[in-house]
Design a protein around this nucleic acid. Structure first.
Lengths: 321, 321
DNA sequence: CTGTTAGCGCATTCAC
DNA sequence: GTGAATGCGCTAACAG
């Protein structure tokens, strides 16, 4: 590796001057600066980030803690975060909290031991990560009050609920995957609120909930609103098996707008999170905190978007389809 | 942050002795070592990895370059890699090559600039990442001769092809997503080889290929073998729309064993990659290279596994269903 | 057995 | 405008 002092010796000047010329900080004659930059270029000089980090006390690395790297949303989050971090010349070190709050804490500690400048954490279901020695921004759980950036899950549920109500549905089933998840609770709450006064709604959870569906439909339910696309696919399969067709017999919606939403037939009506926006805000927030901003108590909420496709049907006699 | 010298000053001993006591390297009296460890514990001392990295010339960080973080397999790879790396006290810094070979090179360079000790790269379709200043291990493309660990894609295709042939299918369609992908070519090649002499096979690619399916089935094809689960879901949807039912009218298979394979109905027969094994070998290989082993020309191949579910049907009159 | 010295590569004083 | 000195925190080599 070519170091600053080699190019210094090479030109016959001191290391400090080279540093100054390259960073543009100190005052160096334009002529000298030019020569230095040229030689650095020739030698393929790359500043040693480790040395710089030691000197500055900052590594330029952010830690990303996910509840489960297997999460279907992880790819998008990682990508958007990586892109946003990149723009600020920050790197992202990943860690998996493997489904337990204890492992989550371990993962955070390992990252901190590695010297990350800040922590981005997507918390374990039902756990609030505790404050640490480094700035932290929590993603996707509005229920945690501090430094949180999150999708408006309630709003998303509201979007779906309103859509379904406007389509004329009067009896709908709300299906969640796991009642422990605050995110899913929020989505369901949004749906209920939108439906309230316009339609009956029954809430069900998990595999048992899926089994209840055929009976509920026979009792008059005309729509099933789920809290994830994956769940919706399972529902569609189960319903097909029971002889119900989507959207003819029953309307169906998902949540998240995963790739599978368009691979399904009918294509799934769902709610898309604005992941890039969340990522950008999260990175902004963590950078602000690193730069010294105090931990703010307000949480940012990013709007979601209804993606209307073919799995929902209007019940108004006048409408086509 | 509490440093080694603070605890040294604290106890009235030199920094070197503390270092020795804590790492167990130098010879320190057991008595002294005990006192030092105790005090370190009390003070909550954590070694500064940056300083250590500067001294040692190694950061303990591996760079992971993915062709597209949005890749549905990324979560598993990231998780398995992260776990395997963890066991060796290595961190993983991610980077996205965003679909282009050029960006792939940039990503690698950024990672190297950050001082990673080695690079794990899942290459861009149809691109062979060029050798770099740090050890590199290529994942999942056997076509690159150097330091590669890959699933046996050909073998996987063979597994599926054999399965279908044994079920009595005599005319099958092989459907790939993108002909540029060597991985998909390998899978198709394996299928063809297994089918050769036992059944007719036609190869189709992409969306156009999906459109051809109904006609091919009417012409007598009884099975569609795809190179990904995602593709299989699309096929199932398109087929349902055209009035064909899986597996009654046509058998269908996927590849990768994504979560959606079990969410579908019928559950998808597919081929699972042994991702944890690949990850472990990749980490082993990169560690060996970092430790000084020469770049070996041989590539490691990890067997795949047939996951037989409900989307394939036997055509033998004697068999049930 | 323990302490001192030195230096990893860089950036920041402060002299010159 | 430029350079010498200094130190970030740690560890290897050597001296005591």
């Amino acid at each position: 590796m070519v170091s600053i002092k080699q190019i210094a010796a090479d030109i016959g000047v001191s290391a400090a001057t080279v540093s100054n010329a390259l960073t543009g900080k100190g005052r160096v004659s334009e002529e000298m600066a030019r020569r230095i930059r040229l030689r650095a270029e020739e030698l393929g000089y790359r500043p040693n980030v480790t040395a710089r980090a030691l000197k500055r006390g900052q590594t330029g690395i952010l830690g990303l803690v996910m509840p489960d790297l297997t999460n279907p949303l992880f790819p998008r989050i990682a990508q958007s975060l990586s892109e946003a971090a990149d723009a600020r010349h920050l790197g992202i070190l990943i860690a998996d909290s493997r489904g337990s709050a204890g492992e989550q804490r371990n993962a955070m500690r390992r990252l901190i031991d590695r010297g990350v400048d800040g922590l981005l954490v997507v918390p374990q279901k039902g756990s609030a990560p505790e404050a640490q020695a480094v700035p932290m921004v929590v993603i996707n759980t509005a229920s945690d009050p501090q430094n949180t950036v999150s999708s408006d899950h309630v709003g998303g549920g509201h979007l779906i609920g309103t859509h379904i109500a406007e389509l004329g549905h009067r009896s709908v089933v709300l299906l969640g995957g796991d009642a422990v998840s605050e995110v899913q609770q929020d989505r369901i709450a949004g749906m209920r609120a939108a439906l309230s006064g316009r339609a009956e709604s029954a809430v069900r959870w998990g595999a048992a909930g899926i089994e209840d569906l055929p009976a509920l439909i026979r009792d008059g339910a005309t729509a099933v609103l789920t809290t994830s696309d994956h769940l919706a696919l399972q529902v569609q399969s189960a319903l097909a098996q029971a002889g119900f067709s989507v959207p003819r017999d029953v309307s169906l919606t998902g949540f998240d707008d995963l790739p599978l939403a368009t691979a399904m037939h009918p294509a799934l009506t769902t709610v898309a999170q604005n992941v890039p926006e969340i990522a950008m805000r999260a990175i902004d927030a963590i950078c602000a905190r690193i730069a010294g901003a105090p931990a703010s108590a307000d949480s940012q909420t990013v709007p979601t978007r209804l993606v209307q496709r073919a799995s929902t049907r209007s019940l108004h006699p006048t409408d086509p389809t």
